[in-house]
Amino acid sequence: MATATSTTLAPISDSRKLRNHVATFAMYACFVIAMIPLVWIIWTLVAKGAGLLGDPHWWTNSQRGITSRIQGGGAYHAIIGTLLMALVTALIAVPLGVGTAIYLVEYGRGRIARAVSFMVDVLTGVPSIVAALFIYALWIGTFGLHRVGFAVSLALVLLMIPVIVRSTEEMLRLVPRDLREAAFALGVPRWKTIMSIVLPTAFSGIVTGIMLGLARVMGETAPLLILGPYAKAINTNLFSGNMAALPTMINQDRVEALKPAVDRVWSAALTLILLVMVLSLLGRLVSRLGSVKTSR
């Protein structure tokens, strides 16, 4: 005989319904609030910056001979500079970062491993300007060299390594121990197990981590300001001369109040975001090619 006071099959109580509604509303509200700045930024960038991007000159020319009174010009010099510095940074930081992560996950035991892990944590907290000044002291102070693109890359390496170590570490730890043991049980040495079983299994996650690191590094400005003076002309030599990058191009025109310069600031910012986005998509594609087989 079920009655309204039955405790076993009672309907959902009003207070629980209310709490459910409040919690649901709060979550949606948080989501919307978090989205506001993102949408706002993208909207502003597209609205103010898309104009110049439609002009082929933007993608093929430099700012050579363009003053702040002249409309347009190109961002090619800054795009190529950003890409070159990022590429060299990745070439140095990826092997070091992935290697450190492999050491920490597969080999590291005891005090040394704890020390390495602690150092990576410290490196994570190093502000970009400190990394830049460290390289400045080393590159210019100790070695007496000039401010060039490669020095910027070295500073960026310091910022990228901890990102790659931490993300790769996570991915390697996700590879089940069963798989390593299965390979060991076949008489496969440890290093070969890591190269042929563990790394391919974690490949897509590692690539995603590298792309995140790259995205962070491409937007860094402090190392550029300290180590990589801006140039309006195209320079593809990382070891000589001033070299443009998108953040310094933004910084260059930012100080001008004239409309043509302001337009270029927005367009360069939008270009940087697009560049990072394209690289992330490429990363997705690459990781999909070589990742875990799921087809039947």
């Binding site: 089940p176 069963d178 798989l179 043991e181 299965a182 390979a183 060991f184 049980a185 076949l186 008489g187 496969v188 070969k192 197990t193 042929s196 079983i197 391919p200 299994t201 490949f203 070589g290 990742s291 875990v292 087989k293």
Partner: peptide, 29 residues
């Protein structure tokens, strides 16, 4: 371990490999 093989509690084929590659893995590696 090349002389004494092992089968584990949970089936653990290598996820990045095809059926053929799984069986060939011990020899190939």
């Amino acid at each position: 371990r090349r002389t004494v093989g092992m089968v584990f509690q949970r089936p653990n084929p290598f996820p990045t490999m095809s059926i053929y590659d799984n069986v060939a893995s011990g020899l190939r590696l």
